[in-house]
Design a protein around this nucleic acid. Structure first.
Lengths: 193, 193
DNA sequence: CAGATTGTCTAGCGGTGCTAGGATCTCGTC
DNA sequence: GACGAGATCCTAGCACCGCTAGACAATCTG
């Protein structure tokens, strides 16, 4: 039984190793470079071992995406905690969101383009997603009240996500992101001069 | 020379045939089902023929995407023309945009997820993209003036695009799209009651 | 030590985008 | 009308993909 607990621990370590390897390859060479053969080589096991940990490649991507949602929630939490009043919180959240997307492009891609599961509002959705949505909602509530709060949060998230994807694909010029954030916050917390 | 013009015409027809075949397969079975082998079978030629028309599969997807941008611009133009005043135009544009994305999912995917070229604001970008952006801009200008117009147009497009992708991936519940459009327009043309 | 169980690897399946090289068909010229 | 030149097209195959069956080795159990 002592041995079997060691086995379980080693298995968990290898599980983590696979996820980290996938993330590292994706961050350095893009998700196209994340193939089961390369993953196997990286973790120094053969391909079939991957399938004893995950149902398939999609599940591995999904695990990386979940890590991403955790990191995003962390960043949003920190930025909201550091802001002074309601409107400043909304601005800080937006900036933190866009900064995360810019600094972790492979992670963001896994979260929103590759792993299409994990719905937001669903009670069954993993905690980090729930928390991320909740942080945005609380920020908006502090700045603008609770009317249509869920819908406005969804809209706010949509605008942020749209900015990220359109900027990333080169559709929007990358330069004026700061100005766009300013306008975004203006539109969502009401204008004042 | 009469024969060579016929040859050119036939080549152009086959070019069109390839694009339409790709679009049809994508719309009925998804883009994963659009393979060069299936395309070749559909147009009743062998695979290499595809490569005498397009540089690769990406170029075929890009051609479908361009068709999509043309159709989107057409819809936006029609909906703007039918609207009464400025705010109504903005609402009509938003509704037309979301309706297009909902009715032509494969086309929208080609335009925004698969064919990452074609920037918006660039003067070199194809006419339909330019026109689509211009229609959104003109609608916003009629409702809200010209201050920060380009940036606000980019933001408006981002919000629409974010709504589309998050809804499509199941992240947002599909039901309340009408309410979200109402809020979106409210946020962009100013609140009144 | 023998047997059962667990863990891992080799080898291979059917699929992908893409291309080299040969066959065929059409055309202008004699 | 026969013929060489050139355009046109197809067969066959490359390297890669995600995934899996079945053989092999290591470990635990009686």
């Amino acid at each position: 039984m002592g041995t079997s607990s060691r086995r379980e621990r080693q298995r968990a370590e290898r599980h983590r190793l696979i996820i980290d390897a996938a993330r590292e390859i994706a961050e350095s060479d893009g998700w196209d470079a994340v193939t089961t053969r390369r993953l196997a080589e990286r973790i120094e096991y053969s391909q079939p071992v991957l399938y004893s940990h995950f149902a398939g490649k999609d599940a591995i991507v999904g695990a990386v995406a979940l890590d991403g949602f955790t990191e995003l929630a962390q960043r949003l939490r920190a930025s909201a905690a550091a802001a002074s009043d309601g409107p400043a919180t909304v601005a800080a959240l937006a900036e933190a969101y866009l900064r995360f997307a810019a600094e972790r492009p492979a992670l963001y891609e896994a979260m929103f383009q590759l792993a299409t599961d994990y719905p937001f509002a669903d009670p069954d959705s993993p905690a980090p997603l729930h928390e991320g949505f909740g942080l945005l909602r609380d920020g908006l509530a502090a700045a603008t009240g609770t009317e249509d709060l869920d819908l406005r949060t969804e809209l706010f998230w949509s605008a942020l996500h749209g900015l990220v994807t359109l900027t990333r694909s080169g559709r929007l010029p990358a330069g004026a992101q700061g100005e766009r954030v300013r306008l975004l916050v203006e539109h969502f917390v009401g204008r004042r001069g």
